[in-house]
């Protein structure tokens, strides 16, 4: 089955986002499946952002930031890398293939690397099936849901 996967891309302002910009300015061709969300640093990306992207129907998630040693807030990318490793162990327990989630270090000068990473991810995701949103999936499980869904947990 061929489909157009949706990728949520969290890019740090100083490196990966600038690289995406550069890819555009250099008129590099890469698939338009990625929706870019700019954050100041990959260290700002809470694991819940990644889970929420998947829960909302993203087929893949990319986190990209500065190279080790190059983070503008010193250690943000190391923190992101540590979270990435644990997330990659958690996602398969939810039945989500670890390869749907990727972290890359992309310097501001590496427009080509950014384009290549997005291209590779899209190709990979096309070999998998589209992911349903978590609510659709839950609605289907026992046919109990739809508009009746309650809060988000513990009373909020």
């Amino acid at each position: 089955m061929s489909f157009e996967p949706k990728i949520a891309g969290f890019l740090c302002n100083w490196c990966a986002y600038t690289a995406a910009d550069l890819a555009g300015i250099s008129r590099l061709k890469y698939p338009d499946n990625i929706r870019i969300i700019r954050v100041m640093c990959t260290g700002r990306i809470e694991p819940s952002f990644v889970l929420k992207a998947f829960a909302s129907g993203a087929d893949g998630v990319l986190v990209a930031g500065c190279h080790p040693g190059g983070c503008h807030y010193q250690e943000g990318n190391y923190k992101a890398y540590k979270r990435t490793l644990l997330l990659k162990r958690l996602l398969p327990q939810f039945g989500i293939a670890a390869e749907r989630f990727r972290m890359e270090f992309i310097a501001s000068s590496e427009g080509e690397k950014f384009a290549a990473v997005v291209g590779e991810m899209v190709a990979k995701l096309k070999t998998l099936e589209p992911l349903q949103t978590a609510s659709d999936r839950l609605a289907e499980l026992d046919g109990m849901f739809g508009e009746a869904e309650g809060g988000t947990g513990g009373g909020r």
Binding site: S48, L51, K52, F54, A55, L86, R89, L90, Q93, F94, G95, I96, A97, R100, L128, E129, P130, L131, Q132, A134, S135, R137, L138, E140, L141, T152, G153, G154
Partner: peptide, 30 residues
């Protein structure tokens, strides 16, 4: 950290954002 899901969601799995395990990556379970 063995069994992350078990540690992280010990009491709140039904309240997780992802809600339920998928079978066969992508497919619904029913």
């Amino acid at each position: 950290i063995a069994d992350p899901a078990g540690y992280l969601y010990r009491f709140a799995a039904a309240s997780s954002l992802l809600k339920h395990k998928l079978t066969g990556d992508g497919k619904s379970t029913v």
